[in-house]
Design a protein around this nucleic acid. Structure first.
Length: 278
DNA sequence: CAACCGCCCTGGGTGC
DNA sequence: TGCACCCAGGGCGGTT
């Protein structure tokens, strides 16, 4: 969605100016603000790409602008003169005087950087994300290999699901929803999962991601962005995540919240029984 | 090396 | 009304 928006609105255009409103937004660009702007200004944005939670735009220089939207980041295309958003972090102005590209991010978990492009298995990727696995939407995604990779891990199933080096694109929300669909408790050890069950879980995660994309999971065009940066999907379609105390849509039992990796996991105590282990 | 833990950072919401 | 505090969460560095 966001990638498509970038491809449609900024590909082929030449950047004339780069403004960094908040240095934290480019904290991963170690050479700093001046270097960041210098590597983008005067370059053409060639094509927009995505892998997992990362998004990048190839530059005519051979480098790429790498973006991670975090949980509150947005890429907006706005006509020049549009009032600055409250949390505007970076602005790219174009030589054609057309719409600007704005990186807006309330919590600044996300950020931008300019990176060299390396080739991994014949695929060009920004160097810092060379280790990130393909996501399920990737045409070359290998489902069987992903299932094997998940089962190979000796850990709790949710930890494996969140590991971006195995399968990318699955975050805390999608993981909880996928586990709910597959009727698995997050603490289930991976080595107790059959390939079939793991496949069911992976398919559920993929379906949740597709559903989120359909309703604009992370919005791109300013026309479709609502105030809190989230879509109606979060209000209507979540079965477990954030639903503590509300009835499970499947069985009616109250959804529970449990601490997990310094955050939370939501699950149905009846549909997703905790594994009986030591 | 695999697994895992703590920390980073901002600001909206909440409770007193 | 104001203020302290909590919480969101992906990824990275450090440790075992």
């Amino acid at each position: 969605m966001v990638r498509r928006g970038l491809q449609d609105h900024v590909a082929g255009r030449v950047v004339s100016r780069v403004e960094v409103m908040h240095p934290r937004a480019i904290r991963r660009h170690l050479p700093g603000t001046v270097d960041f702007g210098g590597r983008i200004a005067g370059r053409e944005l060639v094509a927009a790409r995505r892998r997992g939670k990362y998004l990048w735009v190839d530059l005519s220089s051979g480098e790429a602008v790498l973006a991670h939207l975090g949980m509150s980041g947005q890429m907006l295309v706005q006509p020049p003169g549009t009032p600055d958003e409250k949390h505007l972090r970076v602005r790219l102005t174009f030589a054609d005087d057309g719409p600007e590209l704005r990186f807006v991010d309330q919590r600044t978990f996300g950020g931008l950087s300019v990176e060299p492009v390396v080739t991994v298995d014949g695929v060009p990727l920004p160097a810092p994300i060379a280790h990130i696995a393909r996501d399920p939407m990737d045409p070359a995604f290998d489902r069987t290999a992903a299932i094997a990779a998940l089962r190979r891990r000796r850990t709790e199933v949710k930890r494996a699901l969140l590991d971006q080096t195995l399968v990318s694109g699955i975050g805390n929300i999608y993981a909880d929803e996928a586990l709910w669909h597959a009727r698995l408790h997050w603490a289930r050890p991976t080595d107790a999962l059959t390939p079939r069950k793991t496949g069911e879980l992976l398919d559920a995660a993929t379906a949740v991601m597709n559903a989120a994309l359909d309703v604009g999971g992370t919005s791109f065009d300013a026309l479709y962005v609502n105030i809190n940066g989230q879509s109606g999907y979060f209000d209507r379609s979540l079965n477990a995540y954030g639903q503590e105390g509300l009835p499970c849509p499947r069985c009616g039992r109250a959804i529970q919240r449990e601490p997990f990796m310094n955050r939370s996991s939501f699950s149905c105590p009846r549909c997703q029984p905790r594994p009986t282990t030591s």
